[in-house]
Every structure is written in C-alpha cells, then in structure tokens.
Amino acid sequence: MKITEQQEGKTCIIALNGRLDTNTYTALEKKLGEAFENDAVHILLDLSDLMYVSSSGLRVLLMYLKRSMAEERKFILCGLRENIREIFDISGFTSIFEIYSTRGEALKKM
C-alpha cells in the first residue's frame, strides 16, 4: 500500500493506494500517529484508490476516529469505492464516520 500525505491549510490529507490489511495497517497507524502529533488540526483520509480494507485496517481507522473525538479534531473519510463502502455499511461504520464522496466536498466541511 502506498501512502501519500499533503497539507492543505489546517488539514492533513492522507491518501491510501492499495490494500489496507494485516500486512499494511502498521504503516497507516504510524502515519496517522505522526499526523496527530503535528500541528495539523484535521485529518482527511482520501480512500479513492483503496482497493480493500480488512478488519485490522478498520480497527486503525476506528482508533483514530476515537482519538479525534477526544481531541476535538475532525477525522473525515472521502472517496470510498463501492466495495469499501459496502464493508463500511455492513460493519455499521457508516454511521459513526463522517464520509464524503469527493475530496473537494470533504474539504468544504473542514
């Protein structure tokens, strides 16, 4: 999985490309950890190029969602593909995450 990072004002945009599973979730965990330590107030995860997410990946997302709630930051997802969206729907995560279809839409809500 490839992770790219981009700063946009007070928002750190992190884009994932590939599969977020047992083998790759630690990289994301590390990257998000860094982003939370930095000055960036809000985090936007762009999942447009994410092909697959496993429960290990969902756990990392959940962990940082909880942290952002505690620290009163925004932690927003965008660009979910259909299969990813399905996983979110089934697991009920759609109801707890703030999700937008495009990056632009998400940035407007920041």
Binding site: L62, D89, I90, S91, G92, F93, S95, I96
Partner: peptide, 13 residues
C-alpha cells in the same frame, strides 16, 4: 440489516 457498529467500537452505540 446492520443494527450498530461492532462490539467494542463505540460505547454510546
């Protein structure tokens, strides 16, 4: 039907 998030994920669910 999904009635909520997985156990352990969200306390106030």
């Amino acid at each position: 039907q999904t009635h909520g998030t997985p156990l352990g994920s969200f306390e106030k669910m």
